[in-house]
């Protein structure tokens, strides 16, 4: 029997009048990057804090490798995490920050130098971490998460503050970690940051899971079957309606067609010898899929202020 790397089951947590977690449940499996996506306030960070035993849930359980995090004897060798890249003492050097963390797990200075190398911190590691850019702090946070060579990684918004070069590095790095057989959970409030990185997505909103699926499936479920047809032929609409489609002229020379798949549309147009220049099946982008899913779960939205 395989033990899932992280199992979050029915987590509930209330902060004052706000239900931060409302039955959050999902698993994080080995060998893939799981994206944890949702608007601000969806409960992503709270879930991660509960997994680490920092916040106590009102109900539900969170297990890491089958055990509550608090009971792990050397937790960083099981789960490496990065919640807040700025959570360090600014006057301490990056290397010394990693050194005390290493000592807390019974690891030595050699492992510290390894993760410095691995994350490309290089000579900056001997500088005070307080002077680091957010991007450099993220690298330091990743280095800290990797210290214990854990089989599970959990990163909260690791792309924040990174320059484009850093983002590309981070994407490749996360994929590589998953290819090594590790489970990687990465949160983001932007789908675009994860669409080339995550294999699996858990979409959260208002403290619970809205969708738990693969990236490809998420795209497919939202795709609404609209097809655009570019043609100047006045008979086009009639030909398509005769074939059983619903047609709307969206702009001059373009028809939006529903009710017929693209190959059937091409066949219908050819049968009536209608000339067309383009037939495009409309595919929802992941961003659109995500917005569709979370539409009702967004907590703060422009316009609501006026209510």
């Amino acid at each position: 029997m395989t033990v899932q790397n992280i199992v979050v089951d029915g987590l509930r947590k209330r902060f004052g009048s706000k239900q931060a977690l409302d039955g959050m449940s999902f698993t994080v499996d080995a060998g893939r990057v799981t994206g944890f996506i949702g608007p601000n306030g969806a409960g992503k960070s709270t879930t991660m804090r509960v997994v680490l035993g920092l916040d106590r849930p009102d109900g539900g359980t969170a297990l890491v490798g089958g055990h509550p995090y608090r009971t792990l004897p050397r937790p960083l060798t099981e789960l490496g995490s990065l919640l807040d890249a700025s959570a360090l003492q600014p006057s301490r050097t990056a290397r010394n920050h990693l050194l005390w963390l290493a000592h807390s797990q019974g690891l030595g200075v050699r492992r510290v130098d390894e993760v410095i190398e691995l994350t490309g911190l290089g000579s900056a590691a001997r500088r005070r971490a307080g002077g680091f850019s957010l991007g450099m702090r993220q690298r330091l946070g990743i280095a800290a998460a990797l210290l214990g060579d854990p089989r599970t990684l959990m990163l909260d918004e690791p792309f924040n503050g990174m320059d484009p070069e850093g983002i590309i590095w981070m994407r490749g790095f996360l994929r590589e970690l998953a290819q090594q057989g590790r489970a990687v959970l990465v949160s983001s409030h932007l789908m675009s940051e994860l669409q080339d990185t995550a294999d699996h997505v858990v979409v959260a909103g208002r403290g619970r899971v809205l969708a738990d699926t693969t990236v490809a499936q998420l795209r497919a479920t939202i795709s609404d079957g609209r097809v655009s047809v570019r043609t100047d032929d006045p008979n086009a609409a009639a030909a398509l309606i005769a074939a059983g489609a619903a047609v709307v002229a969206t702009e001059p020379g373009t028809l939006s067609v529903t009710g017929l798949p693209a190959p059937a549309i091409v066949a219908a147009l050819n049968a009536r010898q209608v000339v067309f220049s383009e037939v495009t099946a409309h595919r929802a982008t992941l961003e659109e899929a995500y917005l569709e899913l979370t539409r009702d779960a967004v907590e703060y939205r422009a316009g609501e202020v006026a209510r």
Partner: peptide, 10 residues
């Protein structure tokens, strides 16, 4: 600084 969370995760 919030480093207490890092300390407690270790």
């Amino acid at each position: 600084t919030g480093m207490l969370r890092v300390s407690l995760s270790a």
